[in-house]
Design a protein around this nucleic acid. Structure first.
Lengths: 188, 188, 188, 188
DNA sequence: TCGTAACCGAGACGGTACGTCTCGTCTTAGG
DNA sequence: CCTAAGACGAGACGTACCGTCTCGGTTACGA
């Protein structure tokens, strides 16, 4: 639908706050009523954009190196780079604001990130090949990772280089050497 | 300042979106210009409320039992209970929205939760008494915990009972028995 | 046609301003396009209602007493009573508004009131029996009477009792006694 | 007030129907709310324009020749000429529509035309100098004249030349010669 | 008997204007 | 002199209708 594309365009340009129904209608060459006929609110509209994948860049998921830890670090790092790029924080915060203000968007965010994402596949595979124990709290590991990203976005924390590695360490548990002693460069 | 109290009252009642400068001015018995003289935006106003502790309930921090894991689970559980209570999710989401939309609020949230909180003290003490290794990524552990709470709030995930325990397991790393095998009820 | 009846019903209920094509279509159980197929505008629709006599009450014309003056006063009085009744002024003003806004309705009003009405017959008869001179400006006398009614409706003037008599005096010219002196209770 | 002037300008250009609050606001360089703060409706706005004399041309009243009949015919004729001119009928019908739809405008029309006008002065003087009997129904004579003009406007009757004379004859009563026989060119 | 065409109801569409709301600035009267 | 009160220009909100435009579904006629 042209409306969704117009919404995505304006959302990326201006953010959620500045997004207006009138602007969308005009951008899409559509009457306002046509939007209200199909969506109950700005939130629902943005949620559908999310569902259609019009808001988030694709191709974040890195290649599978066989090592879950490496892959996660690469993935997180890509996200951080994206968040440091121009417009990245604004888009992310707009999404968070939209999710906070609208049940539709919030639920959709959960669906998009929580269940159907790269993380789920990768975690499942890691369990299958024995890199993670079968009783690992996969759900919470994902929440911890994604939540940390959101938290850092909210608090405007700059994403320095090895935060990604440390976060993965937290999520997966520390690497264990044969002697059971933790290793890793965790100094900050 | 009466303005901050009025802001906090209306914020708690109506949330961030419904909060209006005119409403605050009227509630505080003050001219709008007086507000604009001291704060540049709604966000700055809310950020100052946050700083004064007018928005968040006190006394979440549980007693120190000596065991960091127990204390964290208790603390998380209290938060979850708060989030399940009437008005809890709305207030939390309003805070998130405010943080997303306003740099002031976002930064203040970071200060409030990230540096000056219960978590920092508790983590530091755990390191001191050897419950955590000295090189533990404390910062990221906190981000993971708080971020997960935010993520669950955003996605409207209901906070069932042992999510708290699992999240703490993720954050602290699993409990290790003498044999180096993880234990815990992590099935979901 | 069901459409005309629906139009008349809604016109009587709500007036010309509140009359909407969509309302008529719905009331008549008809698609909007069907109305637009047969009538070009709301005005044309109302004009046809007028032509069919669906908008105005019938039977205003009083019995013929033989005296033109008496009959006119009775007729005017009936009109005034109608105008004082519930919904009377609203209907009349709606008609005026419709006539002012739509050439169709205006022309039809002229036909209905100006040429085919009680007044024409009555005036003609009065001329025939010698109650009015043969060169009397019948057209203008009618305009004066009807126009005065419209003017009073527009200006919301209450129709007190002997306005009717005075108006008829104006239209017919004053009664003349043998001595050529005017008589009549014309004090106001 | 700039708002009233803008209203008058647009009313004269476009008529009452096409008059929009948004158009007025824009034309006056004013926010819509400012209009709504001071006037409850389009009607009230137009009524105030009327009161300020912004809608009607001035200088209709002719010189006083001493003969009421001549003056009235001249006056009526001027009105008819105005009504034949470009935009004349549209303005008049817009006024009528406005008066029909809005109590404010209707009442003001009554004030403007019915009580404070040229007619009242002229009639009073005619009574004073004996051209009209002291008990003449002046009010109704005025209503008849103005009403006839309105009626002719509504019905789109073209205002041919001697309609004015005939209307005045109706309003004043026919001229009486010494022999009590009516005279006048009343053929149509 | 069966297309096929006209006409229907329904209602989505791109628009305009509505009247309300809030923004951030500007003005004013009174303490 | 500062403040409360609130008017102001601006413009988004969600609603009501406008007049146009497809849609299927049903008669009803001509082949």
């Amino acid at each position: 639908m042209a409306i969704l594309q117009a919404t995505a365009r304006l959302f990326a340009d201006r953010g959620y706050e500045q997004l207006t129904m009138e602007g969308i209608a005009h951008e899409a060459g559509v009457g306002k009523q046509t939007i209200y006929r199909w969506w109950t609110s700005k939130g629902a509209l943005v949620a559908d954009c999310l569902l259609e994948g019009l808001l988030l860049p694709e191709g974040i998921a890195p290649d599978d190196t066989g090592d879950i830890r490496t892959d996660l670090v690469t993935w997180l790092h890509k996200i951080f780079v994206l968040l440091e790029s121009k417009g990245g924080p604004a888009l992310m915060r707009s999404l968070i604001a939209a999710g906070a203000e609208s049940d539709d968007v919030g639920g959709r965010l959960g669906d998009t990130f929580g269940t159907s994402s790269f993380l789920v596949e990768r975690f499942d595979k890691a369990v299958a090949v024995g890199q993670l124990p079968p009783d690992a709290p996969l759900q919470q590991m994902g929440e911890a990772l994604l939540g940390a990203v959101i938290f850092r976005t909210l608090t405007r924390a700059p994403a320095d280089a090895d935060v990604a590695a440390r976060l993965v360490d937290v999520a997966l548990g520390p690497r264990l050497a044969d002697d059971g002693i933790r290793h890793g460069d965790l100094s900050e």
